[in-house]
Design a protein around this nucleic acid. Structure first.
Lengths: 319, 319
DNA sequence: TCATCTATTGATCATTTGAACATATTACGG
DNA sequence: CCGTAATATGTTCAAATGATCAATAGATGA
């Protein structure tokens, strides 16, 4: 079910030799200001190879570009979000009307993680496209700092697989089940499976979580990947659901509504989630404003990564 | 005396409008992958302007490029340095034979500072070319995180002036005297001047210090800027001096030697310096190996930022 | 007020760069 | 052992970029 959430175009390489080459090239290129040709001479390879090494470095997050001055307008928005919703932190990326939202937010989330995570930290991840994108950018760096991953729900292995976070050196503990299964009984059985239990317990100890926010509409990722039908969502919406987190639907105040589907979900409980001290939600888009508002009101997340337009709308409608 | 340590070519601008423009441009360029032309259209300015904004952003450190995987060979060296000399941390930049050393080490030091300093921190700075370069790169970012600067010695104002760290928003407390004055009496009078006293006391409370390492040879920066004569240095060398820190000369074991000049220096005392928990020395070059060895043996610094060749030589000769 | 000087902006062009294509090399299944 | 596919490397070329020079606006001082 929904196996190939993302095609594996970006399977990152961890060949130490290549990492060394990339680093060396990057150093010369960005710090020393050499041209690709000069680096090629120094390292004794062809120019195009340098070009490709640099490209790969940027893709994988090995080379990270940090903008040290928060965009003035957005800095204000960040502060406003923090105070208006009592957040721990917030990131607002400048708006860009006709650029796809997910990669932009994903990058911002990756950047946030790289800034906040400390060596040996444990990062818990939820389900969703934005989370997947963020991981794609941030994950290659994790082995360096010995950062471990743990999933908050089933169904994430599909897209973690595309981040290159496999192999002996990686440290990813993923719940090996779908997000939702067909019956309450099966879900319960899976939850008490030793390894599943183990991962869920570990997830509850994470210091930082990154989750996505689901909307209640046909466009929901849950629908697109077959975990829900549009019909179900219509019912949920009629009963007051505005969004979902980890497969749990909540109302405008962020209260989890009692739906059957919640007992079909293989995921950490909401109470446990709330005990994770840093819960970052990455989401943007005007269609998500209601969902985000509920999320923040219910303190299901206390960190928000979004874009300018969404932030403005949140502030207009919020509180 | 030695006023223009560096020409003011890089006087950074803090026009908030420009910072915003740079940020916006950088975001589109590096995160969204737009071309300069496209950004020019979006922001409504000429393409060449975007090019210049980006250039300025990189120069001033507003746009920071971080390489997330330590160079493999150098990572080893870093670890070896840390264990061999009992350091708190170390940075080793890859060697590049015919590139000037100072800017490379300076950038590495700036990068180190930006990584380690936390908002509202106080950074103490010593005297020297490398420190000046590091500041040039790192300083523009400080107002953002409300990082304050304090000088450990006199004579730094000359080069801090070139970092744009002036004006109301900046927070730089500099000792308004030369590094060395002509008599013991004058030095003593200056040290008890209220403002000088105040700055020295404040410096002693810093959590992080960045200092340079002076060699005992004609090439010493102290000589070039007129604080010492070659003749003096010859005498010092004959009496066992291998290097200087903040104007204090020490022997191969890092013991401060008792010289008259030390009483002519307006600087924090060595004991107070040693009480600063993180003392980073930035220096590279084979001619500095003896000086660095002494420095580390005497624990005058417990963090070292250097290059590959120097690190290897240190390890060969050290301990 | 004018002249001069400086700083900013704009245009041109050589260099640098990445994308598209072509080729070689290696891995793999029959 | 061969053929096929997948991967890596090399070549060519158009796009993108930054340096240089010219022009303009703005500041400074007599």
């Amino acid at each position: 079910m929904a196996q190939a959430l993302h095609d594996a175009e970006t399977a990152a390489s961890f060949d130490p030799d290549e990492v060394e080459q990339i680093t060396r090239a990057a150093w010369h290129y960005y710090n020393d200001g050499l041209t690709q040709n000069e680096i090629a001479d120094v390292l004794g390879v062809s120019r195009i190879k340098i070009s490709r090494l640099l490209e790969k470095g940027r893709q994988t997050g090995l080379i990270e570009l940090r903008i040290n001055a928060p965009h003035a307008g957005c800095l204000t928005l960040q502060k406003q979000l923090i105070t208006a919703f009592g957040l721990v932190d917030a990131r607002v990326v400048p708006s860009a009307n006709n650029l796809p939202v997910v990669p932009r937010i994903g990058r911002a989330a990756a950047s946030f993680l790289m800034q906040k995570l400390e060596p040996n930290d444990l990062l818990a991840i939820g389900w969703g496209e934005t989370v997947a994108t963020a991981l794609r950018y941030a994950a290659p760096v994790f082995p360096q700092n010995n950062i471990s991953l743990v999933s908050l729900t089933g169904g994430v292995s599909a897209y973690v697989g595309t981040t290159g976070l496999h192999g002996p050196q990686s440290n990813a503990h993923l719940i090996p089940t779908p997000l939702r299964v067909s019956s309450q009984e099966l879900a319960q059985m899976l939850r008490v499976e030793p390894y599943v239990r183990y991962v869920l317990d570990m997830a509850a100890t994470a210091r930082m979580a990154l989750v996505g926010v689901g909307v209640v509409s046909n466009a929901a990722t849950l629908v697109r990947y077959g975990y829900c039908t549009s019909t179900e969502l219509e019912v949920f919406a009629r009963r007051g659901a505005v969004g979902d987190i980890l497969g749990y639907f909540y109302d405008a105040q962020g209260e989890i509504i009692d739906f059957d589907i919640h007992r079909h979900v293989v995921a950490i409980g909401v109470e446990d989630l709330r005990r994770i001290p840093n819960r970052a939600a990455a989401a943007a888009g005007l269609q998500k404003v209601d969902a985000i508002l509920g999320l923040l009101r219910g303190r299901l997340a206390n960190i928000l990564i979004t874009d300018q337009a969404t932030a403005e709308e949140l502030l207009r409608r919020g509180n």
